[in-house]
């Protein structure tokens, strides 16, 4: 077991309070991301209390489309992992920068597409499974993902070396902790919607990952073919946004009716 300050504090303070003859003034220990919570409530973008519960299984409307990159695809820069020989070898010495990955057909991977506006009056059941971030061979897997506000994020270190997971966020509480090789998995939570929160490993500067924290389940990350799909929406007017770590973000307004799926295309430009 690894002792962290939060677990250490209680016995230490207890000892002292006991010694000072001040029993019973125990404080509540604040453990960041202590456990899963059941709603993303409390934030500006979260649904209001009494919002209708939407069961995505009933959804008939949908938005889908492609994220493309105009212009010449930039060459992926090799990553010098020499300082971590095991990771270096695992990649055959040929690890590549993941910030811009363009498919052969000119579509863009790792773009995060989500419904930015239009779902405020709905509330959605929270998935019981945690989102997972794994550090394998000195790379975050996945590089980009979406989670629900309040959803537990399980952080695992599959490497024998130290990684520290340093989350940079504007609206959520930032965290920073070390996970030496062999550590147990850790869990954290982002309580408020935020696109995007960044994870970085300070020990290995090339390691970064992005997490889109969203109040509802309508988000997707593009992969092969640059495709995304946001199915089973309630019919309505939406703003859909695509975000990319290098090219920024673009938004499109779209109206979808019952039993309708709208096609939306995003195009970023390489300068």
């Amino acid at each position: 077991m690894t002792i962290r300050s939060s677990t250490l504090g209680t016995p230490v303070l207890g000892l002292v309070l006991l010694a000072l003859g001040c029993g019973g003034c125990g404080g509540k220990t604040s453990v960041p991301g202590g456990g899963p919570e059941t709603s993303g409530g409390g934030s500006a973008e979260a649904p209001k209390a009494g919002a209708k519960v939407w069961d995505p299984a009933l959804g008939t409307a949908g938005v889908r489309g492609t994220v493309k990159l105009a212009g010449k695809a930039p060459k992926r820069r090799p990553i010098d992992m020499n300082r971590e020989p095991r990771c270096h070898e695992a990649h055959g010495g040929k690890a590549l920068d993941e910030s811009v990955i363009v498919n052969e057909d000119g579509t863009l991977r790792n773009a995060f597409v989500w419904v930015k506006k239009g779902l405020e009056s709905w509330s959605f059941p929270m998935p019981s499974d945690p989102a997972v971030v794994t550090q394998t061979n000195c790379v975050y897997i996945p590089h980009v993902q979406g989670v629900r506000a309040g959803q537990t994020i399980s952080i695992r270190n599959g490497d024998p070396c130290l990684h520290n997971i340093h989350a940079y966020a504007k609206r959520n509480t930032e965290f920073n902790f070390g996970q030496p090789g062999g550590s147990a998995e850790a869990t954290r939570t982002f309580d408020r919607p935020e696109v995007m929160a960044m994870l970085k490993c300070d020990v290995h500067g090339w390691m970064s990952a992005y997490i889109g924290v969203v109040a509802h389940p309508y988000f997707a990350v593009t992969a092969d073919g640059g495709r995304f799909e946001l199915p089973k929406l309630p019919p309505g007017d939406y703003t859909v946004e695509a975000w990319h770590e290098v090219y920024g973000s673009q938004a499109r307004d779209v109206r979808v009716g019952d039993r309708e799926t709208r096609e939306v295309e995003f195009q970023f430009e390489e300068k």
């Binding site: 690894t2 002792i3 300050s5 520290n164 902790f177 070390g178």
Partner: peptide, 21 residues
């Protein structure tokens, strides 16, 4: 606190305390 420091240093591979701790 000193004892925890010493335990960590004697058996670093066990990662008895977290690095930030």
């Amino acid at each position: 606190l000193a004892m925890l420091i010493r335990v960590q240093l004697a058996w670093p591979e066990k990662a008895v305390v977290a690095p930030e701790t």
